[in-house]
């Protein structure tokens, strides 16, 4: 019983750190550019496929690195080709919503055309031969997932808190016209935001793929998880995205261990509904403030 609890906690924290990565990407694109990116799941899918293709030639870890570079390019393209034209004039939430939804469908179909509908297995040298620590079973891949997620999260937080462009991002999030008056290149900030957001999503895909399968439609579930976490943690709230990710991962794992694995996803949504009912600003969200 205690063993099962501890084991499921570990599993939950590993998945939770991936959920946090997914949610962080959504959080910065919403927080800074006011875009709820419905193609975020496809960024995750692309990250996994890029890694799959690159790993076949260069091995898993270099493959992850190449995938990250690819995601920078994808994030920049998404911003330049799709989102920038929508920023002319008044900012609307609907235009980017529909546009990113379209991008999501296009990317799914492109992936279908290139890879077909069958799932691929991305192999990682770390996914086999689990190690046993204090009676708990973990693979090195799990450790890698948690470690890289933690590092990425810390770096992002530090950058946004202390970096020159991190400060610029926060200013643009608040008031883009005044930010422009400060000499901040607004377009540069948006490009940076989507590049970062895409890298975070792609990294999540690249890390999880060896534990699951890769197919053109894995992005749907990834988006749902990411959005659930964003709702749990509070829209546009970075610490909330991290906490929300871990809470979702752990509750899914505990639910799967103690109730039934079949209810794993339902437990996540139940949690989300509870939060919406009782704490709509999110578990770490501030009460709504005037702008």
């Amino acid at each position: 019983m205690i063993w099962l609890f501890a084991q499921q906690m570990v599993n939950g924290l590993v998945m939770g750190s991936v959920y946090a990565l997914l949610a962080l990407g959504l959080t910065i694109s919403f927080g800074i550019a006011r875009v709820i990116n419905f193609a975020h799941g496809e960024l995750y899918m692309l990250g996994a496929f890029f890694t799959y293709v690159a790993a076949a030639r260069f091995g898993y870890l270099p493959g992850v690195g190449i995938s990250v570079l690819g995601m920078v390019a994808i994030g920049l393209l998404l911003d330049r080709l799709v989102l920038k034209p929508l920023r002319k004039g008044k900012m609307s939430l609907w235009a980017p919503f529909l546009a990113t939804l379209a991008v999501s469908v296009i990317l799914q179909n492109l992936a279908m055309a290139v890879f077909g509908p069958d799932p691929y297995l991305l192999s990682s040298p770390f996914a086999y031969n689990p190690v046993i620590i204090a009676g708990l079973v973990v693979t090195k891949q799990d450790i890698l997932i948690a470690g890289v997620s933690l590092a990425a999260t810390l770096l992002l937080t530090l950058f946004i808190k202390k970096g020159r462009y991190g400060l610029a991002m926060r200013a643009v999030a608040r008031d883009r016209q005044t930010a422009a008056l400060m000499g901040i290149g607004i377009e540069k900030v948006y490009m940076l935001t989507f590049a970062l957001s895409a890298v975070l999503a792609g990294l999540a895909g690249a890390l999880v793929a060896p534990k699951a399968m890769v197919d053109p439609f894995i992005g749907r579930m990834a988006l749902l998880k990411g959005l659930s976490v964003v709702i749990l943690g509070g829209l546009g709230n970075i610490p909330g995205a991290i906490a929300g990710g871990l809470v979702l991962g752990v509750s899914e794992a505990l639910g799967a261990g103690f109730i039934s694995a079949a209810y794993k996803d339902a437990i996540g949504y139940a949690l989300m509904i509870l939060v919406l009912l009782f704490r709509p600003e999110g578990i770490l969200g501030k009460k709504m403030r005037r702008a």
């Binding site: 400060l167 610029a168 926060r170 200013a171 608040r174 008031d175 016209q177 005044t178 901040i184 702008a291």
Partner: peptide, 14 residues
């Protein structure tokens, strides 16, 4: 139009 959720110091730096 000060940036209300940045600190006073961050406003100056920006």
């Amino acid at each position: 139009r000060v940036f209300s959720d940045l600190t006073v110091e961050e406003n100056l730096l920006i």
